[in-house]
Design a protein around this nucleic acid. Structure first.
Lengths: 120, 120
DNA sequence: CCGGATCCTGCATGATACTG
DNA sequence: CAGTATCATGCAGGATCCGG
């Protein structure tokens, strides 16, 4: 377990033994907004692009698109496009993505704890 | 729950209500090496600086110092300095830091899962 | 042995304008 | 509505030299 980065390389059987699983997870959720995106999707089942945009004050369209695309590449998020006018695109968690929910909840609980200890 | 950043500001009671706890946790563990540092500390109880350096191939001294300092500021890591020659500094998890262990384990399990799905 | 202090750099993020 | 395309930027991360 010595490798703490890999993004660009294809994953072989050998590499799989060598790569730190913790790092794999970290790389997947590393983006500035990814965790919060996953959280909103875990709370709402299905969300449209502009809805998500409104839920994330401060993010720009371009970034939201990129983070969603990366989550899609990593199989955490499903993207359903409806060929209508005006366009309609719905995002939802895949089964893979739902596996992150325990982590999100643990992080949520911990965050409240940290906030309290910053006050005292 | 509308604020997704805060680092620089002091935390007031009002802000506490407004800040997303998920983001708080994310900010604390956001560094490139922090999660792996926490994981090593959770496996070894006490680790010296250069030991940690050897455990993290690719990191530089300066960065390791900075990440450890930030973890210390956030009260996740304790730094014990022994005034001897040659110097000796030991790092360990605080009680606060140990609260992250469930998250680390969950991330570890998930990482293995993700690796497998990348092969098939 | 364990750092501190600088300087530099790349990439993720952000801002803005345009499109089917 | 849901994006693309392009350019601008800030800051985490890294390299290097110095010090007790």
């Amino acid at each position: 377990m010595a490798r703490y980065s890999y993004r660009e390389e294809p994953i072989s059987e050998d590499l799989k033994e060598e790569i730190c699983p913790l790092t794999v997870t970290q790389n997947v959720i590393a983006g500035r907004w990814k965790i919060i995106i996953l959280w909103h999707l875990s709370q709402n089942e299905i969300i449209r692009f502009n809805e998500l945009l409104r839920m994330l004050p401060g993010i720009s369209k371009g970034i939201l698109t990129r983070q969603l695309r990366e989550l899609e590449e990593d199989k955490l998020v499903h993207r359903e496009v409806y060929k209508v006018v005006p366009p309609k695109v719905e995002y939802s968690l895949t089964d893979q993505g739902k596996k992150f929910m325990p982590i999100l909840e643990a992080m949520q609980v911990l965050g409240k704890d940290l906030l309290n200890s910053k006050l005292s």
